[in-house]
Simulated scan of single mutants.
Amino acid sequence: MSDTADDERAQIRERKKRELQRRLENGGDPSEDGAETPAEPIAIEGQGHLQDVVDSHDVVLVDCYADWCGPCKMLEPTIESLAAETDAAVAKVDVDAHQRLAQQLGARSIPTLVLYVDGEPVERLLGAQDRATLESLIERHG
């Protein structure tokens, strides 16, 4: 691993520590630190955007999808409700528009769901999942 990547990780860890400290000092109110969880899925526009989303939220569920994918369409209402009703941020990556990013996320088939906790990928699920499975996953890591 390059020194640049190590430095970048150290900066991210330091920023996370400051955010957590600020949150503790403010009584744990997420609205105090500016990183409120969006109530709708976030359309990812590239690697940098995904990194910003992952860095800004404690728990992020990333949905790798394609518009032509039947199981992805079946999963869409669940993804939207998870964004609205859980503390996790939900991000959507169009694998056709962002092939390299999808590859980096390990999306060899779609839908692929990747759960990030504290900036690190902790779970990867392949195929359409039911709401209870995804809620349980978020609660277990949230």
Rank of each mutant, 00 (worst) to 15 (best):
W68V: 15
A35H: 15
G28E: 01
R22N: 07
P30E: 03
V59G: 06
Q99C: 09
V59H: 05
D96M: 08
D94C: 07
C64L: 13
V54Q: 02
C72I: 04
A88E: 08
L24M: 05
G119Y: 06
D118W: 05
V62H: 14
A107L: 00
G34K: 11
V54C: 12
D118E: 11
A84N: 08
G34Y: 10
T78D: 00
D96V: 10
D52P: 11
T86N: 03
V62Y: 12
A89F: 09
V54H: 03
T78Y: 08
G28L: 03
G27T: 10
L113E: 07
Q21E: 04
M74H: 13
A91E: 08
D29N: 12
E85A: 02
C72M: 11
A39S: 06
D118L: 13
C69V: 12
R22P: 05
C69N: 15
V95A: 12
G70L: 14
R108Y: 12
C72N: 09
G119C: 01
L105F: 07
P111Q: 00
L82H: 02
N26Y: 03
I44S: 11
I79H: 02
N26K: 07
T78V: 03
D29T: 04
A35M: 01
P41D: 14
R23C: 07
A97F: 09
V62P: 10
D55V: 05
P41L: 07
Q99E: 15
H57T: 03
Q51V: 05
R22H: 14
C64D: 05
K92C: 08
A84I: 04
I42A: 10
D52V: 01
I42W: 04
G70H: 13
L20K: 12
S31N: 01
Q21H: 12
H57F: 01
C64R: 08
Q103N: 07
